[in-house]
Design a protein around this nucleic acid. Structure first.
Lengths: 129, 129
DNA sequence: CTAGTTGCAAAGAGTTTGCATGGCG
DNA sequence: CGCCATGCAAACTCTTTGCAACTAG
């Protein structure tokens, strides 16, 4: 089941390469590539995610997030503001500490695809439920 | 906008009361109450969630999770096995430690509705992607 | 050639909503 | 009685899938 180098696949990989610094949704990709239909974007993302080119980095609450998987890119968790939707990174060091805490307490191996729900400093006190 | 005591509402509250120890999905509720249509279950859950009777405790990956909100019930995070879907609690103490770590690192207030993605001890090494 | 890929449209899963009817207070 | 809640079906959002036509190697 080796994969072919199609125009569509190249475009999606190129998109993730030029957005290495942030997590993107399938919608982001489709919006940037109007000539690649959504279903194809979903299929290509699914493949790239399997072969390790990109990795799922959690969810924005609704949609899945994916990010280019650089060689020595240390995995990190994210936190999303429940009020404004903003997503930020937790540094790899904090991520490792949390993983240890969880593993010791539960026996589960915590994955860094975890996305915390939270409130950012600007939204604290002005939550709109 | 005070709420009326209807048979359906009472049934849903009663369900959550008798399942205080675990998080339930709208589907769980609807399945236990065959004479209350799904849309009504969703609407009642939405209300109860607003008025604080129950609280959203995260997601099972697809569906939302809700739990009865006892007065002195300390909030806790959950961890879900990505492989088998099993959900377990993290104890309140571990939850507090994680909240502190996150807050210090990011400035976000971490909410205990966070559900970790992980692998339970039984599924480690036998993940099926 | 021919297995893997695309494009389209339709199906799924979970959730929300519009609207006429019904019932609590 | 008036306002809120219910029931039904339809809409909505995100994602997956079936299938015939296409294309990279």
């Amino acid at each position: 089941m080796r994969s072919y180098n199609t125009r569509q696949r190249a475009a999606v990989v190129s998109f993730f390469l030029s957005h290495q610094e942030r997590s993107c949704t399938p919608e982001d990709v489709a919006a940037a590539l109007p000539d690649v239909p959504q279903s194809t974007v979903y299929r290509i993302i699914s493949q790239l995610s399997c072969d390790g080119t990109i990795r799922r980095s959690g969810t924005d609450g609704r949609k899945n997030l994916y990010q280019y998987q650089g060689k020595e890119c240390p995995g990190h968790m994210h936190i999303r503001c429940r009020n404004c939707g903003r997503i930020e990174h937790l540094d790899p060091q904090t991520t490792r500490s949390i993983e240890s805490l969880v593993e010791n307490a539960s026996g589960f191996m915590a994955l860094d695809t975890t996305v915390f729900e939270g409130l950012c400093s600007e939204c604290r006190g002005q939550e709109k439920p």
